[in-house]
Design a protein around this nucleic acid. Sequence first.
DNA 1: TTTCCACACGCAAACGTTTGCGTTACCTAC
DNA 2: GTAGGTAACGCAAACGTTTGCGTGTGGAAA
Lengths: 343, 343
Amino acid sequence: MKQKVTLKQIAKELDVSISTVSKALKDSVEISLDTRQKVKAFAKLYNYKPNNIALSLKNRKTKTIGVIIPEIVHHFFTTVIGGVEKVANEKGYNVIICSSNNSFDKEVINLEMLASGSADGFILSVAKETQLKKDYHHIEETMNQGMPVVLFDRIIDEIVCDKVIIDDAKGAQAATNHLLSIGCRKVAILTTVDYISVGKLRTNGYLRALRAYDIQEEEELILKIEDVDNCEAEISEFLRNKDIDAVFAVNELFAVTAAKVLNEQGKKIPDDISIIGFTDGILSKHFIPSLTTISQHGEDMGIRAAKLLIDKLEGDDTVSEEYRTVIIDTSLIQRQSTKKTKR
Amino acid sequence: MKQKVTLKQIAKELDVSISTVSKALKDSVEISLDTRQKVKAFAKLYNYKPNNIALSLKNRKTKTIGVIIPEIVHHFFTTVIGGVEKVANEKGYNVIICSSNNSFDKEVINLEMLASGSADGFILSVAKETQLKKDYHHIEETMNQGMPVVLFDRIIDEIVCDKVIIDDAKGAQAATNHLLSIGCRKVAILTTVDYISVGKLRTNGYLRALRAYDIQEEEELILKIEDVDNCEAEISEFLRNKDIDAVFAVNELFAVTAAKVLNEQGKKIPDDISIIGFTDGILSKHFIPSLTTISQHGEDMGIRAAKLLIDKLEGDDTVSEEYRTVIIDTSLIQRQSTKKTKR
DNA sequence: TTTCCACACGCAAACGTTTGCGTTACCTAC
DNA sequence: GTAGGTAACGCAAACGTTTGCGTGTGGAAA
């Protein structure tokens, strides 16, 4: 089990100095052609690869991007990562992914860990707990140390930095609008508790759409779900015998769960009730009936976020005090779970 | 925008040497209590964090694990990652995730990149292209440089190293067995082309189960799918008017697609045809009807893989020439897509 | 007063690179 | 023969740590 070969070893073998080897490998004219070739041949033979760690230490940059997301087992976030990886790799950056598991503490730990030398900048979507706690010191500290941060999706208004979001309210309004435009009038919404920023925004969009149609909002048509993992009973209870003709769910899970319980309650989708979801995931696509939904274009978000970050990383420090917020357009993907009603 | 504070800066401010600061922070008895407290107070104030890069360089280890998977947008792999992260974090390791996107080249690039200083060891599941190409030099090189590798799921028999797998053949046999035991006799299989190791193994398991029941295998009940992304038409064609009473799909996508096309062809699941899948993902769980499937226990795989790797990393080099293969038990998760037939 | 010891701290090397500049040695030209 | 130039290479510092060992200072014991 041979060890990694270093410049020093090559130097010793060839009886030249370390700097000669280094320069030879970079084709410096300072070194004779002869020596250059000898060194390169030797390096290839022993499969020399410069040690990234040493380079990072010397250059004070790691060429890697840290991505921290609330959940790794989540289709939307993985598509975002896909986008990030795409542009990162193009530009010669590595990507480190950590999941906070929606825990504030783990988010702090991960961020500090990566911030102390492992990454040059961050792309992150904050944990649920962080949104609840409103404690952002770790993010601010990271930025104070000169490392750029790009927030996406679950962002924090109070923090000034680059951001990539969708217009959640607008998307939700479009979704609700679609339901209204096909004739639905009693639209229930399945949303999250208010401290989840995107949930609240989507709820707002829903309300806005109703108002635009002069429809009075009704408390009993709004369900704010706290415990996402055990939402089925709650949704079932909520939907039972309710006089509605449509359901807008702010995420995929709520949408399919609604479809499931409505099914069990003998309702036909989309004939009796239309359903529209949010996030174009694998579930929406393959469910029967396939679900009409709002696509967040996760990959695009990742691409834009990575570009913003790399711009900051490679820009001169002079222009770096300007922050941008990119809003990705959502789009309505029409499938089988919504249908024009006859009334 | 202040920079990261280093030992050197603290030393200068306090007018002591760097080593004194370093030792003071580690509570060395060499340093007077007075100085220790002063240094620590100062360090806290300026939020000193040791630079990981420098530590890595010094210690010749990074305390990070590299994970390379074929696809990041894939529920099974993300659950595995979840398991890896769990034990890695417990043991103070960082996790870097890269996806090869099933491309051989990207797998090589990622591995070499991480191998040149960013990670101490690897957990990886090889890309489709790699399995096809049978070119494993990058993995062997990495191991030759003294970095342990743990292969999981899509492994390579020719490489000697730690491995974590499920008994794919056995799982497939159990799946098929279940279909046979509830009375099905004409069982079709939707599988992948043979160069995908797990696909082939699952096909073998299917055949074994048939033989155990003295059922003649029939070529026309076996569909080997190459283009996973556009499998619907192929599956629809294959299943049309076929005299079968059950379908065994080697992955989730094939299973739901089968369910969908059978639905369209007017068959009832599970009344007319039973379906069983492989991989307990989000689709199987939420589909209607929910899908009976074989669970691979992805998180367990991740946990075991991480443990194997860390054992190697932290063990003395003397015992390190022994490699283990851990086989994770699969289990049958019975849901609504399979049902005892009356015959 | 001398000797010794312990305490408190600093020096320097090491990890693997890169790079500006200094240093040879040889050659050319005058 | 000497000055000057140039080709080819080595030195050393720097990135931020850690740590064994050397060193200076002081006090106490003899």
